[in-house]
C-alpha cells in the first residue's frame, strides 16, 4: 500500500465515520465497554501479582523459644537454625526486642505497657526466611526438632490463599479477554455491516470501475481501526480515573500491601488496550466486508 493509497484510504475512512457518526459512536461505546472491563481486570491482575510477590517475600516462619530463655540461649538456638539447609536468613528477636516491637504497634497507647517486665511478656524467637517456599513444610519440621524450640508458626495459609486467588483471576482474565474480544468483534462487525450495507451501491460502483477487493476493504479496515483506537483511548482514560480513585481509597486503609501506582500500571495497560482495540476493530471490519465484495 503506497503512501498515496494510504492517504486516500484514511481520508475515506474519516469521511465514512463523519457520514455515519451515530454508527461510529455506537461502535466506539461497544469497544470502550469491553475494553473497560478488560482494563479493570488487568489492573487488578497486575496488583495481585505484586501482592503475591510481596507475600512470598514476607513468607517466614517464626520459632518461639521457652519464655525463660535468655538472649544467650536464644542466640544458640537461632545459630543452630541458621545452618539448616533451605534457610535464607535466621534473625533473632530477643525478649526485649519483642517487647519493644509490640509497644511500637500500640502507638499512643504504649503507656499501658509501662508496668510489664519485658522478660515475662513475650518469649525470644527466631524469624526464618526460606530459600524455597515450596519446601516450607520440611523446614518447619526440621526447626521444630531442634532443642529449645517450643512452637513454630507460619503464614503459609495466607500466602497459599493469595496465590490461588491470583491464579483464578489470571485464568478468569484470559477467558474473559477472549469472550470480550469475540463479543466486540461480533458487535463491531454488525455495526460496520450496516455501514457496508448502506454503502452497497458505492461498493458496486467501485467494482464496476475496476476497484480491487483490497481497495474497497482498506477504508473499512482503517475505519474499524480508528473506532477501536478511539474506544481504547476512552477506556484507558476511564480506567486511569477509576484505578486512581480506588488506589487512593485503598491507601487510606493503611499500608498492609504496597499497591502499584496508576503511573506504574497504566503504560502497560494502555498499550494492551490500544492493541486490543485496534485488532478487534480491524477484525470486525474484515468480517463485515467479506460477504459484500461479490459483484
Amino acid at each position: 500500500m503506497a503512501f498515496r493509497g494510504l492517504k486516500y484510504y484514511c481520508s475515506e475512512a474519516f469521511k465514512n465515520i463523519w457520514y455515519n457518526k451515530l454508527m461510529a459512536i455506537t461502535s466506539i461505546i461497544t469497544v470502550m465497554s469491553c475494553l473497560l472491563i478488560f482494563g479493570f481486570f488487568l489492573v487488578v491482575q497486575l496488583n495481585l501479582n505484586d501482592i503475591t510477590k510481596q507475600l512470598e517475600g514476607q513468607c517466614e516462619i517464626q520459632a518461639f523459644m521457652p519464655q525463660e530463655y535468655n538472649d544467650e540461649q536464644a542466640k544458640q538456638v537461632c545459630d543452630k537454625i541458621s545452618v539448616l539447609p533451605n534457610v535464607k536468613s535466621a534473625i533473632l528477636e530477643t525478649r526485649q526486642q519483642a517487647y519493644d516491637n509490640y509497644k511500637d504497634t500500640l502507638g499512643t497507647a504504649a503507656n499501658v505497657m509501662e508496668n510489664i517486665n519485658p522478660e515475662e511478656f513475650l518469649p525470644a524467637s527466631c524469624k526464618i526466611r526460606p530459600n524455597d517456599i515450596s519446601q516450607l513444610n520440611e523446614l518447619e519440621a526440621q526447626v521444630s526438632a531442634i532443642e529449645g524450640v517450643e512452637e513454630v508458626i507460619n503464614r503459609r495459609d495466607t500466602v497459599n490463599g493469595v496465590i490461588s486467588v491470583n491464579s483464578i483471576i489470571r485464568n478468569g482474565c484470559i477467558i474473559f479477554a477472549v469472550l470480550l474480544a469475540l463479543i466486540a468483534v461480533f458487535i463491531i462487525s454488525n455495526t460496520i455491516k450496516l455501514d457496508v450495507h448502506a454503502r452497497q451501491r458505492e461498493i458496486h460502483i467501485m467494482k464496476y470501475v475496476g476497484a480491487t477487493d483490497w481497495f474497497i476493504r482498506w477504508p473499512f479496515i482503517i475505519e474499524g481501526i480508528i473506532v477501536g483506537f478511539l474506544g481504547a483511548v476512552v477506556a484507558i482514560l476511564i480506567t486511569l480515573l477509576i484505578s486512581s480513585l480506588l488506589l487512593n481509597a485503598l491507601d487510606s486503609f493503611g499500608n498492609i500491601f504496597q499497591f502499584r501506582s496508576s503511573s506504574d500500571t497504566m503504560p502497560l495497560v494502555s498499550v494492551v488496550l490500544l492493541l486490543f482495540g485496534v485488532v478487534i476493530g480491524a477484525l470486525g471490519s474484515l468480517v463485515a466486508v467479506r460477504k459484500h465484495l461479490q459483484v
Partner: peptide, 17 residues
C-alpha cells in the same frame, strides 16, 4: 479489476454517489 479498468460503463440509473 484489470478488465474493468479497460472499460467505461454507463447505466440507465446513472449510479452516482
Amino acid at each position: 479489476p484489470e478488465l474493468r479498468r479497460s472499460l467505461g460503463v454507463v447505466f440507465q440509473d446513472f449510479r452516482l454517489l
